[in-house]
């Protein structure tokens, strides 16, 4: 039985962590390598870097961060943000990333998913989907969500479930599903969205957006049937530790990898 994964997400720009953290025991909380190392020692099951840089210099900085992280952090490392070619995927994988996460570029050109999966294997290809509820005048029946691109700025007219099914068919190995409605609210994940997607595909789905309490994480993994939860704010601000999260989930009967094992 696979353990439910707890995955800290670090937003990185030009080689620095963007969102501030409240860890005063870190020498340099803005250094992604040090922060990743901290979460690794805390028992994180995986690390995600979302690189919000577009420039060429920024990409170099990212590759350097990935390389240095992979030397010190012995858990899978996923990198996303602006990846638009198999060549850049290869550079990231060779630098030490285990998976790459595609979003806008995959929507523009789904061939990228296929090319990546054929060259590096499906297990390397994560598709990030930013989803927003379509307002249907208060109707709770037949909930629908629309895919957004460009960091959530552009509606694409695509249905989230259809896109999830399509990326699985083309070769994606995992889906990172962010609810734009829930993101930043700390009110809990959009479990309807999660359940709809996990019920439509067979590849693992990582829940993202909305976690504020331990119960929220538990609900995403049970009601939403997610395989993993991505967490940013609640970890970065020290609201909960990974050990605390795992202890809670384990007490509720979910399989988790014990910290320090």
């Amino acid at each position: 039985m696979l353990a439910k994964r707890i995955i800290p997400c670090l937003d990185v720009r030009d080689g620095r962590v963007v969102k501030g953290t409240r860890f005063i025991n870190l020498r340099d909380a803005g250094d992604p390598v040090e922060l990743a190392g901290f979460y690794y020692s805390e028992g994180a099951d995986e690390i995600v870097f979302l690189d919000i840089t577009a420039s060429v210099e920024g990409r170099r900085a990212t590759l350097d961060v990935v390389y240095r992280t992979a030397e010190a952090v012995f858990i899978p490392l996923t990198v996303g943000g602006g990846i638009d070619s198999p060549e850049f995927m290869q550079e990231l994988l060779q630098s030490g990333a285990d998976k790459v996460s595609l979003n806008t570029a995959a929507l523009r050109d789904p061939w990228l998913i296929k090319a990546g999966a054929e060259r590096f294997g499906s297990q390397c290809i994560v598709i990030a989907i930013d989803a927003r509820r379509i307002d249907q005048a208060g109707q709770d029946i037949n909930l629908k969500w629309e895919v957004y691109s460009h960091g959530g700025r552009q509606p694409t007219g695509r249905d989230v479930i259809e896109w999830a099914v399509e990326v699985e068919r083309i070769g994606a190995g995992e889906i990172l599903l962010t609810s734009m409605d829930a993101d930043g609210t700390l009110d809990g994940y959009d479990n309807d969205l999660l359940a709809a997607v996990t019920g439509s595909v067979r590849i693992p789905v990582i829940a993202s957006g909305g976690a504020g309490t331990l119960e929220h994480l538990y609900e995403a993994l049970t009601i939403g049937r997610a395989h993993a939860v991505l967490a940013a704010s609640i970890l970065h601000f020290g609201t909960y530790s990974i050990a605390g999260i795992k202890e809670y989930l384990s007490a509720k009967g979910l399989p988790v990898r014990p910290v320090n094992s």
């Binding site: 696979l2 994964r5 099951d45 499906s122 297990q123 190995g173 067979r202 693992p204 993993a228």
Partner: peptide
Amino acid sequence: LRVPHVGWNK
């Protein structure tokens, strides 16, 4: 089964 088998297992 869900294939590939990806993740932490005992």
